[in-house]
Simulated scan of single mutants.
Amino acid sequence: MDDGSRRSRWQLLAHEMAKFGVVGGFCYLVDVLVSNLCHGVLGIGWLSAKTVSTIVAATCAYIGNRHWSFTHRARTGLRREYTLFVILNAIGLGIALACLGIARYVLDLNSVLAFNLAGNVVGTGLGTIFRFWAYKRWVFLHPDDPKAVLHAETDARRGQRLPEPVGRL
């Protein structure tokens, strides 16, 4: 691999991370607001409040990531992408719930601060690292990925026009 293609790959990674970060920042605010509304105002338990907030934030994240962060990547079908997205977000939710469960049931912490630190800082942070890696690996594929090529060929045989990427990298 020459220096030019290596530099280009790093630039693409930085570009994707920046967009993922913007979408993630917005969805993080949604997650924190909804989880605190559910727990602090509605009195819903820690794990249930985090589950509701993650579902709302993940839906926002899918829309933002599919249509902006990873718009230049291959499209392999809404059903396939969204199914994988839901599964990977369930794993991310599991990471956040594990952090909350340890804080609440192992460390016996029960303050709003502990709820936010365990679930919305540590849990969401670890889950975000996992999700960025997993989305790139399985959901929003590089156009040269064999699965993306297979889906593009199938769509072409069906006479479906593939969407053009929005914007340049």
Rank of each mutant, 00 (worst) to 15 (best):
residue 52 V to H: 09
residue 31 D to H: 09
residue 43 G to I: 03
residue 57 A to T: 11
residue 16 E to P: 00
residue 140 F to S: 15
residue 141 L to Q: 02
residue 75 R to Q: 12
residue 104 R to L: 10
residue 65 N to H: 07
residue 78 L to Y: 08
residue 126 L to P: 03
residue 112 V to P: 12
residue 49 A to W: 00
residue 147 K to V: 14
residue 120 N to T: 09
residue 62 Y to M: 13
residue 158 R to E: 08
residue 125 G to S: 06
residue 152 A to P: 01
residue 38 C to W: 04
residue 31 D to F: 14
residue 152 A to V: 03
residue 12 L to T: 09
residue 106 V to W: 12
residue 132 F to Q: 02
residue 78 L to N: 09
residue 37 L to G: 07
residue 132 F to H: 00
residue 145 D to K: 02
residue 12 L to N: 02
residue 34 V to N: 01
residue 109 L to D: 14
residue 162 L to A: 09
residue 148 A to F: 01
residue 13 L to P: 01
residue 155 D to R: 08
residue 88 L to P: 01
residue 167 G to W: 07
residue 62 Y to G: 10
residue 64 G to E: 11
residue 39 H to L: 11
residue 14 A to D: 08
residue 31 D to M: 09
residue 131 R to F: 04
residue 107 L to M: 13
residue 132 F to Y: 02
residue 39 H to V: 12
residue 154 T to S: 10
residue 159 G to A: 09
residue 96 A to H: 01
residue 155 D to Y: 04
residue 56 V to D: 06
residue 147 K to M: 12
residue 15 H to P: 04
residue 19 K to Y: 01
residue 132 F to S: 00
residue 94 G to I: 09
residue 128 T to A: 08
residue 55 I to N: 07
residue 119 G to W: 02
residue 159 G to D: 09
residue 162 L to T: 06
residue 75 R to N: 14
residue 113 L to E: 09
residue 30 V to L: 00
residue 8 S to V: 12
residue 24 G to I: 02
residue 83 T to K: 15
residue 18 A to K: 04
residue 161 R to A: 07
residue 9 R to G: 04
residue 134 A to P: 07
residue 66 R to N: 15
residue 80 R to W: 13
residue 49 A to H: 03
residue 73 R to V: 14
residue 28 Y to P: 12
residue 144 D to R: 08
residue 17 M to Q: 10
residue 41 V to E: 11
residue 76 T to R: 15
residue 21 G to A: 03
residue 141 L to E: 03
residue 79 R to T: 15
residue 116 N to D: 06
residue 28 Y to R: 14
residue 145 D to E: 02
residue 87 I to Q: 13
residue 54 T to Q: 14
residue 91 I to P: 07
residue 145 D to S: 06
residue 142 H to C: 01
residue 134 A to N: 05
residue 75 R to A: 15
residue 121 V to F: 09
residue 74 A to P: 03
residue 159 G to Y: 10
residue 53 S to F: 02
residue 117 L to W: 03
residue 69 S to N: 14
residue 86 V to D: 11
residue 127 G to R: 02
residue 92 G to Y: 07
residue 35 S to T: 05
residue 10 W to R: 14
residue 118 A to R: 13
residue 8 S to L: 11
residue 158 R to L: 05
residue 17 M to Y: 04
residue 42 L to N: 04
residue 12 L to F: 03
residue 109 L to E: 15
residue 143 P to L: 02
residue 142 H to F: 04
residue 120 N to L: 02
residue 117 L to S: 07
residue 24 G to V: 00
residue 38 C to E: 03
residue 169 L to R: 13
residue 16 E to G: 01
residue 145 D to A: 02
residue 140 F to Y: 10
residue 35 S to F: 00
residue 11 Q to F: 02
residue 126 L to Q: 00
residue 43 G to P: 03
residue 163 P to M: 06
residue 45 G to Y: 03
residue 107 L to P: 11
residue 79 R to L: 15
residue 104 R to S: 07
residue 39 H to S: 15
residue 97 L to R: 05
residue 163 P to V: 01
residue 135 Y to T: 06
residue 169 L to I: 14
residue 83 T to E: 15
residue 95 I to W: 04
residue 146 P to C: 13
residue 126 L to C: 05
residue 73 R to E: 00
residue 25 G to N: 07
residue 106 V to Y: 13
residue 48 S to R: 08
